[in-house]
Write a protein that binds this DNA or RNA. Structure first.
Ligand SMILES: [Mn+2]
Ligand SMILES: [Mn+2]
Ligand SMILES: [Zn+2]
Ligand SMILES: [Zn+2]
Lengths: 180, 180
DNA sequence: GCGCCGATGATAGTAATTATCACTTGAGAA
DNA sequence: TTCTCAAGTGATAATTACTATCATCGGCGC
């Protein structure tokens, strides 16, 4: 198992291809193709540094100085919902702490944000040798498995009340489209 | 490579053992052993659901109704710093978006929060069959490698100015202790 | 027991994100 | 092409998670 850092320059062709079909994909997703959306996806595809909303907004404003930061936030979430982008930080609502220091990994329900510990026999061993990332001194890793827990999967199928967590529920609807 | 969900009941003995040496570990870390800290680590070790600060606070207040939420926030960060807890959400400052939909993973610099794409040949294949987590319907996974980038590693060794990012820099000091 | 410095509680402040709402515009219908 | 209108946007207020401040308290080494 070998690790290699993805070269930035590989992204140029990829970005062009994605841009070419973006409008079509928007319409397929029932979304209007607005200049803001085009500018935002273009900025995102042009970046290799996993930017935050504010960075995207700054880039977009170089050509469209009128664009609102709120629109950038909204649009980025929309892009995730239709599968045109992903959020690196799946659980950034609020910090989640763990008292378990044993090496282990996590299954995260994208709907209710439940987190459960999992152990994956052999993964530690397999990774330990592989993580010689040039340009980085790694000292830890963790695998996050995105999932729907049984409760939430049930709710999707039938009708029913949604589970706990203020803010999680709000975001849940958005995240829905992606798994399905 | 087999995945299994960690049973909650396995934690009881572990928690007791950790509590037994907590005071000593605090002093070793140069920290005073306060009733708040004891109550907070106890609540954290008693939870298997990766609670947020507010949940810990609620639990702690059942016995110590006076405890401040600010103290809980501070203490949880302190526990992470001395290695008595970990944060599941390493990058929850602000949402980070990714235009790259190809399956890949991330190396994260815990100091400057730079994120780089990495591909790990064989990992997808190795995991694909293994992720039959009972009680969850998985549909994706991502490996996060915690590291220090060359810039930040250099800064640690010699003296020098710290890199970009408002809020990242603030938290950096805290995260520091863990890797070192 | 004494005293000091770190820890805490109360509270104000900050920053990211989201909600609201009046106005604009993309996109299908006529 | 023009019309219609729901969806999208911008300005801004609100929310929320967290952090800073600071007066006071209390572990802990003496
Ligand atoms: Mn865990
Ligand atoms: Mn990426
Ligand atoms: Zn769930
Ligand atoms: Zn760095």
């Amino acid at each position: 198992m070998e690790l290699r850092i993805v070269k930035d320059n590989r992204r140029a062709a990829y970005a062009r291809a994605r841009m070419a079909e973006f409008a079509a994909r928007c319409r397929r997703g029932g979304l209007a193709v607005t200049p803001q959306r085009l500018a935002i996806i273009e900025a995102l595809l042009g970046a290799t540094d996993h930017p935050r909303a504010e960075a995207i907004c700054a880039e977009v404003r170089r050509r469209h100085p009128h664009v609102s930061l709120a629109t950038v936030h909204r649009t980025l979430e929309t892009l995730c919902r239709i599968g045109e982008a992903r959020k690196v930080t799946t659980l950034h609502d609020s910090a989640r702490y763990d008292g378990n220091l044993e090496p282990h990994h996590h299954v995260v329900c994208v709907r209710c944000r439940r987190i459960r510990d999992v152990e994956i026999a052999g993964l530690e061993r397999a990774l330990a040798g592989a993580l010689a990332a040039p340009g980085f001194k790694p000292f830890g890793w963790s695998l996050e498995i995105q999932a729907l827990c049984d409760d939430c999967a049930g709710l999707d199928a039938g009708a029913g009340r949604a589970p706990k967590s203020r803010r999680a529920r709000k975001r849940a609807a958005q995240v829905q489209a992606n798994p399905a």
